[in-house]
């Protein structure tokens, strides 16, 4: 199989069959509770950039610095710091490029540093012991998968607003249940990659 077709299969796997939200369950509240598709796309894109950036940087840090120094046990603290730095950097850039969007997302941006999807992808790269190329693609494609999942969930939320929901299920429970149905739908992609 050529490298290009392998990369394409990996893309399908990261976005659909092994989606970071619906299959790997690296879910935070903000991922299932965005109310508007526009805001969800903004936050999803921002998180995707942070995932891609920190995935590569964490891999470089682990393989080229921590491993030669035999300091692998420090990897978690190091990753957390790298992710916090990446988030700050991305937030600064967003503030310069799209000040209105950065203003609107406000507090959500800083919380991306504690998003389990970001750290999860960085940890998965170490777990599988992959090369830098795959770490880069994994970050890029999983970020894309995160964006897709966020936009899908925001679409569901927009419809939920006009439906009659039993009182105890209002808010987070119904979001989780609709995410569960979405996860079932995504299981239909199984076998594609």
């Amino acid at each position: 199989m050529s490298d290009v077709s392998r990369a394409l299969l990996f893309l399908v796997s990261c976005v659909f069959t092994q989606n970071v939200i619906f299959a790997r369950l690296l879910v935070s509240r903000s991922a299932v509770e965005s109310r508007r598709i526009g805001a969800a796309a903004g936050l999803g894109l921002f998180t995707a950039v942070v995932i891609a950036l920190s995935s590569v940087l964490a891999w470089i840090l682990y393989s080229w610095i921590l491993k030669p120094l035999h300091a692998e046990s420090l990897y978690l603290v190091a990753f957390v710091l790298v992710i916090a730095a990446c988030t700050q950097l991305a937030a600064l850039c967003l503030g310069k490029i799209r000040p209105a969007l950065a203003e609107g997302l406000g507090n959500c941006l800083a919380l991306v540093a504690a998003n389990c999807a970001v750290l999860g992808i960085a940890l998965l790269n170490v777990e599988t012991g992959c090369g830098i190329g795959q770490a880069f693609l994994n970050g890029l494609f999983s970020g894309l998968g995160y964006l897709v999942a966020l936009v899908c969930m925001a679409g569901v939320q927009e419809r939920l607003e006009y439906s009659k929901i039993p009182a105890p299920l209002k808010g987070l429970p119904i979001s989780l249940i609709s995410a569960s149905l979405m996860a079932l739908a995504f299981m239909g992609f199984a076998g594609m990659a």
Partner: peptide
């Protein structure tokens, strides 16, 4: 399965 995790937790919070 992952979908079941989302469903069960959602229902438990609802209860």
């Amino acid at each position: 399965m992952p979908a079941g995790g989302l469903l069960v937790v959602g229902l438990l919070i609802g209860i």
